[in-house]
């Protein structure tokens, strides 16, 4: 366990070093959030029909998404790992006396948590001091907040184990960058980071909500505002656990295969 903690720490420290990058990301996230709030406001005001989520719920969804962007985006994958896959440096990783899957998992988790820890505070602060309609509200209640924390953790696990599957698949192809863009392009929409999933009309919606991607940021962000509650929430939690186990096992198997392949082919 200690080994994995130290991988985590190294990533955390390097994450902090990029000062300017942090400032940039903060501004970006703040700006993005604000623009999105404005879009939904315009949508609300110019139509007689009511939105599928309450406006305060949308606002908190948007701000939480921006604040914890680093935890959930499947786009910003670990470039070092990809570099290793491309230039073959990965063979060295398999020579170390630790489980490759565990090590990479810890690494990805480390860099995500580090980035999010650095960025969520200021973004949330901005979101709290903004004027009324764009201000993020308090959680829907204590239970909602506790469930928010739980589902947040679970969706982080789902996201990381999904990324692990992508890394491992990339290992088996000669053009990892291409596959990565293909994957993330699809996931971005299906996970609800382009528009919240409730905005997707019915026949599509019920299919999408069973996919693993809906178990990522979709669940905690809607739990916070109480948009997702009661039985639907319980169901979502179990779905998250289910997908985490499936993705973990799948990724682990793939990792094993990759290891064997290296041993057999000598890299």
């Amino acid at each position: 366990m200690k080994k994995y903690i130290s991988f985590f720490r190294v990533r955390f420290a390097t994450g902090l070093q990029y000062r300017m990058a942090a400032v940039t990301a903060l501004t970006t996230q703040f700006f993005w959030g604000l623009m999105e709030c404005l879009i939904y406001k315009a949508l609300m005001e110019s139509n007689a029909v009511s939105l599928p989520m309450g406006y305060p719920a949308i606002v908190s969804y948007i701000w939480l998404k921006e604040a914890f962007y680093a935890l959930f985006n499947t786009w910003a994958t670990d470039n070092d790992l990809f570099g290793m896959i491309v230039d073959g440096g990965i063979s060295y990783e398999f020579c170390r006396p630790v489980s490759v899957y565990g090590m990479w998992f810890a690494r990805s988790l480390g860099s995500r948590v580090a980035e999010a820890a650095l960025r969520c505070g200021p973004v949330l602060l901005c979101a709290i001091i903004l004027p009324a309609p764009y201000r993020i509200g308090p959680p829907a209640g204590l239970t909602a907040f506790l469930f928010f924390l739980l589902t947040m953790f679970l969706s982080l696990m789902v996201t990381v184990s999904f990324c692990m599957v992508v890394y491992m698949l990339c290992f088996f192809t000669i053009s990892p960058t291409g596959w990565r863009i293909l994957f993330t392009g699809a996931v971005e929409f299906l996970s609800g980071s382009v528009i919240p999933l409730p905005f997707i009309p019915q026949p599509y919606n019920s299919i999408i909500s069973f996919l693993p991607f809906a178990s990522m940021l979709n669940v905690p962000l809607r739990t916070y505002s109480g948009d997702l509650a009661g039985n639907a929430l319980i169901q979502a939690v179990f779905l998250q656990i289910f997908w985490f186990i499936v993705l973990y096992l799948f990724g682990y198997r793939l990792c094993h295969k990759a290891e064997n392949r290296i041993v057999i082919q000598g890299g």
Partner: peptide, 13 residues
């Protein structure tokens, strides 16, 4: 100048 270490990295911000 840039030094290594977690503490330094924070200060460097």
């Amino acid at each position: 100048k840039r030094n290594a270490g977690l503490k330094e990295a924070c200060r460097h911000l």
